[in-house]
Amino acid sequence: MQESVPGKKIDKQLTLPLRHALNMSIRNIKIRFGRSIIVTSSIILGIAFLMSILANNAFMAGILEKGPEHIKIALQQDIEEMKIRQIWLVSLSLLVCVVGIVNAMLMAVTERAREIGTMKCLGALDKYIVEIFLLESSMQGVIGSIIGVIFGFAASFIVYLLKYKGLVWSIFPTELLLKYSLFSILLGVIISVIGAIYPAYVSAKMEPAEAIRREV
């Protein structure tokens, strides 16, 4: 992260060690907890929906593999039609999720204009500001996705438990569920980073003179 401009009298060096950037991001999330919850909850909802559908697929795959014949036949019929609808719904919900994050983060940027301006006066480069915002967002992404995965799994699991009772245990698709969980978490983090890119860019491009005097 360290850079130096060659050919200068003094070694002109500016840094923001990752440890400090992380520390600042964590504090920001903690102190502005209300705002963090809005960002996080949109991820939770989006990922919970995705995971519930994935878990649903996993259970269904389990039944098709190990379940009794009469259930298999009934399932097979509507499985094809369902797949297309699922993709639509999931894409839509994740899109809404991104928009929600952009919105909440843009508000956070406005709210913190003066703080950003001050940091620039103290020597922060644009990329430090971007870094802090992206770190914050990806941490919210990790937390939100994990919670979302738990909720989504629980919802799907309860539905199958009620419908097929004890059968669920015998076909429990552990491996597939783990795979889908990891995928969901990864996707959640990517989505929250994507949602934060534009707000982070806006904040980094703020002119310090203007940002400092902005009253919120």
Binding site: E3, V5, K12, Q13, L14, K120, C121, L122, G123, A124, L125
Partner: peptide, 8 residues
């Protein structure tokens, strides 16, 4: 970059 350094 140099401006940020100057401010710093």
């Amino acid at each position: 970059y140099e401006l940020a350094w100057l401010r710093c």
